[in-house]
């Protein structure tokens, strides 16, 4: 019989509720019945090892995936992936996707009338190193309109997808930019009730990460759920 150490559960308000009416698409998709509380078993505590093979250097440099350079403001996005006690999550897959500088996704169903950039795909992936650190070079994404409500605009953001060590640590989220006036108007970000938790999704400008005469640097640390303390640790 395997010894199972369950993961800690999120604090109230730190994660969004499925139904958040200002984000209209939640209304016909959010569960209407209560979720069934599932004490963690081996199925939730194990997790896939995915995407570790065949990661090319250009996968983490989105400015070098085509013959020419993409248009826009070149940036570096880096950070540490840690658990809720600050311990690094090493060798885990980080996948990102974003619009180009004009606010357009390279996606057949994005019909925002902004130009595509032949030199920018907007998808990247990397593994965290032994210290939980990842790093991407990309260009700053643009804001874009959507039809959620009159005059609705998504703030510039980068989508992040992470696995972590277990099925329960799977996280898909978005990174925002500091000082963006659209943050206060964005129902996607505002779906997170707790202000401190929302701030976790806003990257910080970092002059130490910034490379002279090359690219501005942003720091974006990601905190995944961690296991409950073992009796020994307590």
């Amino acid at each position: 019989m395997d010894k199972v150490i369950p993961y800690r559960r999120p604090e109230p308000g730190s994660q969004p509720d499925y139904l958040y009416e200002p984000y209209r698409s939640t209304v016909r998709r959010a569960p209407v019945r209560p979720l069934v509380f599932l004490p963690h078993t081996l199925s939730e505590l194990s997790g896939p090892i995915y995407g570790h093979h065949a990661i090319a250097e250009s996968d983490s440099d989105l400015t070098r995936q085509h013959a020419g350079e993409p248009l826009g403001e070149r940036i570096i996005v880096t950070g540490r992936v840690v658990d809720d006690r600050g311990r690094p999550v090493p060798h885990t897959l980080v996948e990102i996707w974003q619009t180009n500088a004009a606010g357009r996704y390279r996606h057949a169903k994005d019909n925002h009338p902004a130009p595509l950039d032949p030199n920018f795909s907007g998808a990247g992936r990397a593994l965290t190193d032994a210290h939980g650190i990842y790093r991407f070079t990309t260009i700053k994404p643009g804001a874009y309109p959507w039809r959620n409500h009159p005059n609705a605009w998504r703030p510039a953001h980068i989508h992040f997808s992470l696995f972590g060590p277990a099925f329960v640590t799977r996280l898909i989220t978005q990174m925002y930019f500091p000082g963006d006036p659209l943050l206060a108007h964005d129902p996607v970000l505002q779906s997170v009730p707790d202000e401190k938790a929302r701030q976790r999704l806003v990257s910080g400008f970092d002059i130490q990460v910034t490379e002279p005469e090359w690219a501005l640097g942003y720091r974006f640390d990601i905190v995944l759920r961690g296991p409950q303390a073992t009796p020994f640790e307590e």
């Binding site: 984000y23 809720d84 989508h159 970000l189 905190v223």
Partner: peptide, 12 residues
């Protein structure tokens, strides 16, 4: 540390 909140995967 407060774990990072989830956000929608979106359509794209």
């Amino acid at each position: 540390l407060v774990p990072s909140p989830s956000q929608t995967i979106g359509p794209f």
